[in-house]
Design a protein around this nucleic acid. Structure first.
Length: 547
RNA sequence: GAGCCCGUAGCUCAGUGGACAGAGUACUUGGUUCCGGACCAAGAGGUCACGGGUUCAAAUCCCGUCGGGCUCGCCA
């Protein structure tokens, strides 16, 4: 509804500007502050004041008069308030919101195919919280693009060809399991990471056996393994097997230089040369990634990659090299996130400091379970059995962690604190999930949602506010998808929950005396439920029917 | 040292040219015979890091300073 409303506003405002003889290049459309009774407003009068030779409020008044709403469906009215031209919704706008169903927030198909790559990492160990933003943001970005009407594919590119894997392979053969600590969990990556850490300790000379000669021998062996991986690389990786082709094309570029036996690229925007072929003839990650991205460009309309800020330079070099190779790099967008730190310092897989994501999730589920159990006595509705408690604990615990991470702007650094991430009150997943459960509770008792329900029966300000929030959801999806900023959806869920709670407080649904009002409120709760369920779905947070 | 990112209430964060800078948390006070109190209402809390500039209008854009982070490898 919001998008159609916005298009109508753009159209009628442009017409009004033309009829007054003003330029239409900047419509100045924005969202008015809280308390203003309009869905959208225009501040264009400020910019026209000089040209019109009249103060902004006068220009705004003239424009408001010139707006012709006779063909408008969703825009119900236009008023001048100070220097602003305000557009208020009509009945069709509210009716559309009340009709919101299971496809809430899903936009019309764009026809674009998009590949979202995230969490690409070396399989050398478990994911710690420092890196946890990658899968969580990546998943939300992919969901967001799918809701925005794109045909989305998700890729998790496991790189098992680089030096870290060669080091790991060497360490795995070199060290005896009996000399290693017990794995922290019964899973492969916890088993493997012990070798990886021990290997790094050895190479750093931190163990007794690590004499300079031994380290040198180890390095030689790792190099030999790397050569072997490189040879096997082409056979096993169809998608990056065009690396040779990329190397050949790069060598023909005038930016290519051959220095110190290695092929390098002198990129104009970067100080340092980018080596794309080692002196021993093996390729580098970035070279293989170039071939991988050309494959993406051939196979999809657009590509999105979610990367930590430590990869930012490499992402820039990749983009410029792709450009040199003749690709349209507008197809590629990169979402960069900052690392998560602990109050006591940095996290590192290699050093073994930090909190594993698995541990955090377990702790979250444990705390959620306690929370559910202490609230059991307060329940007035259905009884819960052990399975229900476990399900709710998982939905709430994992939801709280994901929400805590996805709700923040990725570019900002986060200091991770247990208490904050697992606070189940206020600006958190459970707060929003609770709204969903409440809706389900009401609908459960209400039975069928009537087709006859009409917004004419919804006259309370809290009812109208809720309708506006429901109507706005597709607009939020549109803007968040355009900017690749899923945290905007999280912000929306918070505001939405507050709006719903205000409605819940002021407007009894099941006990409403007027049957038409009761019917309409039930339909409103159903629309709200679909909205909050899908908003949580975008964020990758479960929407429990009871909790 | 150079490049990039960040700095908003005690704390955690929204807001990134336009209507009085907003939430939560913590603190103070109040609310449930009534659809689920994981809720709600009220109060208090701000040199938007600092200093210049552009603009009718700057937390938002530009320049500089300070503080923090990331990067600068024939690693990924």
């Amino acid at each position: 509804m919001f998008i159609a409303f916005r298009e109508e506003v753009e159209s009628v405002l442009a017409d009004a500007l033309r009829s007054c003889g003003y330029p239409t290049d900047d419509l100045g459309i924005e969202r008015p502050p809280e308390g203003v009774d309009a869905v959208l407003a225009s501040s264009v009068a400020y910019r026209l004041a000089g040209e019109a030779g009249a103060p902004p409020p006068q220009v705004a008044g003239k424009l408001a008069d010139a707006v012709d709403l006779s063909d408008a469906t969703y825009v119900g009215g236009v008023t001048q308030q100070g220097a602003y031209v305000n557009f208020t919704p009509g009945d069709a706008y509210f009716e559309g919101a009340l009709d919101t169903g299971p496809d809430a927030g899903r936009l019309d198909p764009t026809g674009d195919s998009v590949v979202v790559e995230h969490t690409s990492a070396n399989p050398t160990g478990p994911v710690h919280v420092g890196r946890a933003r990658n899968p969580i943001i990546g998943d939300a970005v992919a969901n967001l693009l799918a809701y925005a009407g794109n045909d989305v594919e998700r890729h998790y590119y496991v790189n098992d060809a680089g030096r870290q894997m060669a080091l790991f392979t060497w360490a795995y053969e070199q060290f005896d399991e009996s000399d290693l600590p017990e794995p922290e969990r019964d899973r492969a990556e916890y088993d493997f990471v012990r070798y990886y850490r021990r290997g790094n300790e050895f190479l750093d000379g931190e163990t007794e056996a690590a004499t300079p000669e031994a380290v040198e021998a180890a390095e030689a062996e790792i190099d030999a393994i790397l050569q072997g991986l490189e040879a096997g690389d082409e056979a096993t990786h169809e998608r990056v097997s065009d690396t040779d082709d990329v190397v050949a094309r790069l060598q023909e570029r005038s930016e290519a230089v051959y220095e110190a036996d290695a092929w390098q690229l002198d990129l104009p925007s970067f100080e340092k040369n980018l080596v794309f072929l080692r002196s021993d003839g093996t390729s580098l990650y970035t070279t293989r990634d170039l071939a991988h991205h050309e494959w993406k460009f051939d196979s999809y309309d657009r590509a999105v990659t979610v990367l930590g800020e430590d990869h930012k330079l490499q992402a820039g070099q990749l983009r410029e090299a792709l450009d040199l190779l003749g690709n349209d790099t507008d197809q590629l967008r990169t979402v960069i996130y900052s690392y998560v730190n602990l109050p006591e310092g940095k996290m590192s897989t290699r050093a073994g400091t930090g909190i594993d994501l698995d541990d955090l999730l377990d702790e979250a589920i444990d705390r959620a379970r306690e929370e559910v159990e202490t609230r059991l006595d307060d329940r007035t509705r259905d009884e819960l059995d052990g399975d229900d408690i476990e399900r709710i604990a998982k939905q709430v615990g994992i939801g709280a962690v994901r929400y805590d991470i996805v709700a923040k702007q990725p570019t900002k650094a986060i200091t991770f604190e247990w208490e904050r991430a697992l606070d189940f009150e206020a600006q958190s997943a459970p707060y929003v999930q609770y709204v969903h459960a409440r809706c389900c509770g009401i609908l459960d008792e209400a039975g069928e949602v009537s087709e006859e329900a009409t917004v004419a029966a919804l006259t309370e300000p809290e009812e109208r506010d809720l309708l506006r929030s429901i109507a706005r959801f597709p607009g939020v999806i549109d803007e968040a998808a355009t900017e690749l900023e899923p945290h905007r959806v999280a912000t929306f869920t918070r505001e939405f929950a507050e709006t719903f709670n205000a409605f819940y407080r002021e407007c009894p649904v099941l006990s409403a005396e007027d049957p038409e009002v009761r019917e309409a409120r039930i339909a409103l709760v159903a629309a709200a439920r679909h909205t909050v369920a899908n908003a949580l779905d975008v964020l990758g947070v479960a929407a429990p029917e009871s909790m």
